[in-house]
């Protein structure tokens, strides 16, 4: 019976744990120092491994010139648009297929057959139909996102304990009430698991198709840097890509804590 009554209310969310992020930060700076030291001593070839100061300088120059902002806007625009399209269709379809055995038997073979196909392999076909512009890029991202969110949402619905359906129906809940009060909240943890995978996949797809066809975007910047032998720019852009990936994931994690206050978050 001993439950601390101060645990309720608004104190949800991950606690900032100093000991969890101080050691990794120290390690990061130590590695940077080793890198800078080795570059300074001339041990590292400055073409393959430009010094951290050089990369930082290039990054600064890229951000003041607006080059970085243009690329970021282009990539993030594609990521968000493709993600929004794919995730909304995927979550709705996943909920419906999870809820209705009929829809599941009807569409499951399609989902099972198309899911293992690497979506990037469809890109040439999409370019054939939609051209090299924005449409083919957004659609390929949306497709990759759709399958991940659909499958996770569907398995989330099917994973809800039958007990909760019994309770709801015993209380007289109709189909729509069961959907709104049981299926939707009950599958939310799985939906978010799918969204996090899908957001990472969206960034991956965006950069991948930009390497191939785009004039703008982080992927294009990477490719141009390689073609012009600007390894400092290459590393600077890579750094930006990884920071973008990390921030997207962290943002979604915050959203998850807000959306699922009823689960113990670590």
């Amino acid at each position: 019976m001993a439950t601390d009554s101060s645990r309720g209310g608004a104190q949800f969310g991950p606690k900032l744990n100093v000991s969890a992020w101080v050691p990794p930060t120290i390690l990061l700076f130590a590695l940077l120092a080793v890198w800078a030291g080795l570059s300074g001593l001339g041990v590292l070839d400055s073409f393959f491994f430009p010094s951290p100061q050089k990369v930082a300088g290039t990054l600064l120059q890229m951000s003041t010139s607006g080059e970085l902002a243009t690329a970021l806007t282009a990539t993030l625009g594609r990521v968000f648009l493709g993600f929004a399209l794919g995730a909304s269709v995927g979550v709705v379809a996943g909920l419906l297929m999870g809820e209705s055995a009929f829809l599941r038997t009807l569409f499951d073979p399609w989902v099972s057959a198309l899911y293992p196909l690497p979506k990037i392999a469809l890109f040439p076909v999409l370019v054939l139909f939609l051209g090299v512009g924005e449409q083919s890029k957004v659609v390929i991202i949306a497709l990759a996102v759709l399958f991940l969110t659909l499958i996770n949402t569907m398995s989330g619905v099917q994973g809800i304990s039958p007990l909760y359906f019994d309770v709801a129906r015993n209380c007289g809940a109709g189909r729509w009430q069961v959907f709104r009060r049981v299926i939707l909240p009950g599958s939310l943890p799985s939906i978010f698991a799918g969204l996090r995978l899908a957001l990472g996949m969206a960034l991956l797809m965006a950069v991948a198709v930009e390497l191939v066809t785009a004039r703008q975007g982080l992927g294009a910047l990477l490719w141009v840097s390689w073609e012009t032998m600007r390894t400092d720019k290459l590393y600077a852009t890579l750094l930006v890509v990884s920071v973008v990936g990390w921030s997207l994931n962290a943002g979604l994690a915050r959203l998850e804590v807000w959306a699922i206050p009823w689960r113990e978050h670590r």
Partner: peptide, 28 residues
């Protein structure tokens, strides 16, 4: 009209205690 109680209670994890108890009334 019946009311079921299960071994694990069957409280909805996503509702507060108050909403859980009020759920049956809400459905009525």
């Amino acid at each position: 009209r019946t009311s079921l109680v299960f071994q694990e209670g069957g409280l909805f994890p996503w509702m507060t205690v108050l909403d859980n108890v009020a759920f049956g009334l809400e459905m009525l």
